[in-house]
């Protein structure tokens, strides 16, 4: 499992993004995190070559949400063979935007003194959920009504053993906010909101039935391609 931090969203364990075999001995593993409003790409660079590596730099291709390095990739000393270095690269969301398929695809170029290497990775959308994503209740009700039913997407979150309060507090840790909770005929209905860094709002209804480990998630959003990735974020957050 990953790491739950007190002041930040869920962080998945690092995985290998660039195998050494494909990059003349440079291995890169990484993950993404969000802590008190700051997004970072957390990397481990490992030198599996027989020569020293230096002169590192990183660049992102245009992507759906304008993710970009907020600082240069700083490796303070040359990397000797078999040496690893951990780097937290701060990111912002003011880079060039181009819609990717899948939406959360990120293409990265890394260079060192040997060559330039390319890889792509998927980032979890919850790193883009902002801290002020709690919608006013009146606005929620009006927006929910305003977005047509055709724009409502339905998903099943299967085998989740948490109760409604535990669900709310876990999601809030990743900036998904519960605005109202109602109990109708024994089932808990949670009304929730979140906002992405680019200002897109997502409204959610999470239905939890007694003695049923499968939850129903209904999402309303003016951007119809977004809900699938929001559902994936719910799955990731609730099951870790």
């Amino acid at each position: 499992g990953g790491v739950g931090t007190l002041s930040g969203s869920y962080v998945a364990p690092k995985t290998v993004w660039l195998p050494a075999m494909k990059a003349k001995g440079l291995e890169i593993s990484g993950t993404f995190s969000r802590q008190v409003g700051s997004i970072s790409m957390d990397l481990v660079l490992t030198n599996k070559a027989l020569q020293v590596m230096s002169d590192f730099a990183i660049q992102f291709n245009r992507n759906s949400f304008g993710l970009a390095p907020a600082a240069p990739l700083q490796v303070h000393a040359p990397l000797t063979p078999n040496q690893s270095v951990e780097i937290s690269l701060p990111l912002n969301t003011v880079g060039s935007v181009m819609k990717m398929d899948p939406l959360n695809n990120l293409q990265v170029a890394v260079k060192n003194n040997i060559d330039v290497f390319y890889f792509s990775t998927l980032y979890p959308l919850h790193i883009l959920f902002v801290e002020d994503g709690k919608m006013e209740r009146q606005t929620f009700l009006a927006t929910w009504k305003d977005i047509p039913n055709d724009n409502e997407a339905h998903f099943q979150i299967k085998e989740c053993s948490l109760n409604a309060d535990a669900v709310s507090s876990k999601l809030q840790g990743s900036n998904i906010f519960t605005i109202a909770k109602r109990n109708v005929e024994g089932q808990d209905m949670l009304y929730q909101s979140l906002k992405l860094t680019n200002g897109i709002w997502v409204l959610a209804e999470l239905r939890i039935q007694p003695n049923n480990p499968n939850f129903t998630l209904s999402l309303k959003c003016r951007a119809p391609e977004v809900p699938l990735y929001i559902y994936q974020a719910y799955e990731t957050i609730l099951k870790n």
Binding site: R137, Q138, L141, W144, A180, R182, V184, E185, Q187, M189, Y191, E205, R207
Partner: peptide, 20 residues
């Protein structure tokens, strides 16, 4: 909590979603 009619509105929403 101040009764601004919104509590009731959420109850109606939840009700309508359960028994459309």
């Amino acid at each position: 909590e101040m009764d601004d009619g919104l509590d009731e509105a959420f109850s109606r929403l939840a009700q309508s979603r359960t028994n459309p």
